[in-house]
């Protein structure tokens, strides 16, 4: 079983959901990326999603777009991503790393070469936002050859039949998109997310992580009780450092505190069960 599979297995037996923060690699420099990942790991992140910036991120809202622009304009390259992952591993952080990107940077490097390199530096999975199951065979093969999981997306508009097909091919976990739209922090969990999680849990037992719009503990508890095995938080974290005028140390402290809170909300299942037991 992959490290990601084992992570979800262990969380399930301890009655927790996975906390999966998204970090835009190279935003504020790769030095900051490493520090941020270290902070998040310390705060209890179970898996890290590391974004490889792309110039034309059409599934992302303004927050992640701006982060990608900042990273790319400071000279970030695909090699910088691999170097950053190496440094994270050298730092002794062993959490599974999912690289989230768009397909073109992968195609440019060569799908096989990309997967080989990612595996070599210690990455665990790849998620290409604009690669639906119809087009993903080449990546599936290359990822499989290199022991990487391919994380697939499902959306509120994905039919049951299609969701069954996607989940049937799933490795690691499936990423459920909470809304029909783009990434960006929101305050509450939309109804579309709750009904999607319900549908997916009836279709398959593959772990499902919910993302797009996650920013607070209330949403996390709602997601977990609606059947999610984990949550992905991206834009909200980026907002915390990009909109702050505080020094780096204070910002990282704030992020750590916030992320501990999010992580604690993923323990809602066990809390709920404990409460039931008490009653």
């Amino acid at each position: 079983m992959s490290l990601i599979g084992a992570t979800f297995g262990a969380l399930k037996s301890s009655g927790e959901g996975a906390y999966i923060p998204y970090v835009c690699c190279g935003d504020r420099g790769t030095e900051f990326t490493v520090k941020l990942v270290r902070t998040l790991a310390k705060a209890g992140a179970d898996i890290v999603e590391l974004g490889l910036p792309f110039s034309d991120p059409l599934a992302d809202g303004p927050t992640i777009q701006a982060a990608m622009v900042r990273a790319l304009s400071s000279g970030f390259t695909t090699q910088s991503l691999f170097d950053t992952i190496s440094r994270i591993r050298d730092d002794g952080i062993g959490k599974p790393i999912v690289v989230m990107t768009y397909y073109n940077p992968v195609v440019r490097m060569g799908v096989d070469a990309f997967c080989e390199k990612l595996s070599k530096v210690g990455g665990d999975a790849v998620l290409t936002v604009d690669l639906p199951i119809e087009e993903s065979r080449q990546l599936d093969d290359a990822a499989g050859d290199n022991g990487l999981d391919v994380i697939r997306l499902v959306a509120p508009t994905t039919s049951d039949a299609r969701a069954r097909e996607i989940m049937g091919q799933a490795t690691g976990f499936v990423y459920a998109v909470s809304i029909s739209g783009v990434t960006g922090a929101k305050d509450t969990l939309p109804d579309t997310a709750v009904s999607l999680l319900g549908r997916l849990s009836r279709i398959s037992s593959v772990p499902v992580a919910l993302g797009f719009g996650i920013s607070n503990q209330g949403q996390v508890r709602d997601a977990i009780s609606a059947g999610a095995s984990g949550v992905v938080e991206g834009s909200a974290l980026i907002n915390m450092y990009s909109q702050s005028s505080q020094d780096e140390e204070s910002v990282l402290d704030l992020i750590e505190k916030h992320s501990r809170g999010i992580k604690s909300a993923t323990r809602f299942i066990s809390d709920e069960e404990t409460q039931k037991e008490r009653l």
């Binding site: 599934a59 604009d130 639906p132 119809e134 087009e135 997306l153 959306a155």
Partner: peptide, 19 residues
């Protein structure tokens, strides 16, 4: 599938697949 030789295709995020 909307291919012209090896060009073309359907490289879109899952949110757009249904539409």
């Amino acid at each position: 599938d909307g291919y012209f030789g090896r060009f073309g295709g359907f490289y879109v995020p899952e949110v757009l697949v249904f539409a």
